[in-house]
């Protein structure tokens, strides 16, 4: 089970961080020993089960949208609120440059601490959040900027106000409008992509998934509780749902799987960003060679063919 190995690795990471803060160099003997030990622990982290991948996809240390924007984009200008009712902190985005090209970037926001997660509502958006994303994306269409979305959510927020403000309508509207854009749209599932709350940012020309990300109709817990009235059958649900990046690629829903470092992106974020940068660059240049009409037809054809 990857859980135990990663707990050990976490302890080593902390020790290394402590040594670094004391001014130890990377080639210090103690540091070298620790990184050898880390490598030894990570080596068996291959052939992971679907349950392992769900665990990794949700890991709090996993890089999130803030990290991706810092690492992959420049000149980020945040856009706030739906300009109709409120600002939803569960959605984050704005205008930025990718390799110098102005793009609109938007996604679900999760935190690295409990406080951040409470502030961002664990990435569970309300209608205001989806409408904020729509505002950002509509402007991209208006100004001819490619759109890059990052998907990472346990699902849309189930709450009284969310329902009163039209959660269903907000999700449906996003999908409908995204399907009609003439600019390149690339979506990347980076963590957990659960339910319509994920798909509301996922009607794209190219769907990429990080190796340990998952994409599913509902969370495994919700799935088990609906089908078997027993949310504790979570592990079984993970297997049966076929939700891993490889499964989703196999089902012809994802176009490409972006490889992650052993043990998951959090163990070597720089390498992860490198792989993401390459994948985005490759797909974006291919899409930017297409005309607006082709981009529209390409996207419609992709989703029309979903079986």
């Amino acid at each position: 089970m990857i859980r135990e190995s990663l707990m050990e690795v976490g302890r080593i990471n902390m020790q290394m961080e402590e040594l670094r803060s004391k001014g130890r160099a990377e080639d210090d003997q103690e540091m070298l020993d620790l990184s050898m030990e880390k490598a030894r622990l990570l080596r068996p982290c291959v052939n992971l089960t679907a349950e392992d991948k769900v665990f990794l996809a949700r890991k709090i240390e996993r890089p999130h949208i803030d990290d991706f924007i810092k690492a992959l984009f420049t000149d980020f200008f945040e856009q706030r609120g739906d300009h109709l009712y409120d600002d939803d902190p569960a959605i984050y985005g704005g205008i930025a440059r990718f390799h110098g090209i102005p793009v609109s970037v938007v996604g679900h926001r999760k935190g690295h601490t409990a406080e951040e997660n409470v502030a961002y509502n664990f990435g569970m958006a309300k209608p205001e959040g989806y409408r904020k994303a729509l505002r950002i994306m509509d402007q991209a269409e208006k100004f001819g900027r490619p759109i890059i979305t990052f998907i990472d959510t346990p699902g849309a927020f189930p709450g009284i106000d969310a329902e009163e403000h039209g959660q269903g309508e907000a999700i449906a509207r996003n999908m409908a409008r995204m399907s009609s854009y003439h600019v390149p749209v690339i979506s990347i599932v980076t963590g957990e992509g659960s339910s319509g709350g994920a798909l509301a940012l996922g009607v794209c020309n190219r769907l990429l998934m990080l190796e340990y990300a998952v994409y599913s109709v509902l969370s495994p817990e919700g799935f088990a509780s609906i089908l078997w009235k027993d949310s504790s059958r979570h592990a079984e649900a993970c297997e049966i749902m076929k939700l891993t990046a490889d499964d989703i690629r196999e089902a012809n829903v994802a176009d490409e799987v972006i490889p992650e470092p052993l043990g998951g992106g959090q163990e070597n974020p720089k390498r992860l960003y490198g792989s993401m940068d390459m994948a985005i660059e490759k797909n974006l240049s291919a899409l930017m060679a297409m005309s607006p009409g082709e981009l529209l037809r390409d996207k419609r054809r992709k989703f029309r063919g979903m079986q």
């Binding site: 999700i171 449906a172 999908m175 409908a176 399907s179 009609s180 339910s195 319509g196 798909l199 996922g202 009607v203 994409y215 599913s216 109709v217 509902l218 799935f223 609906i226 089908l227 749902m241 076929k242 939700l243 499964d247 989703i248 089902a251 829903v253 419609r300 989703f303 029309r304 979903m306 079986q307």
Partner: peptide
């Protein structure tokens, strides 16, 4: 639920 991701994608297909 029994059709997993295939069921989810119908939301995008019909909305489009």
């Amino acid at each position: 639920m029994q059709e997993g991701i295939h069921s989810l994608m119908q939301m995008a297909k019909t909305s489009s």
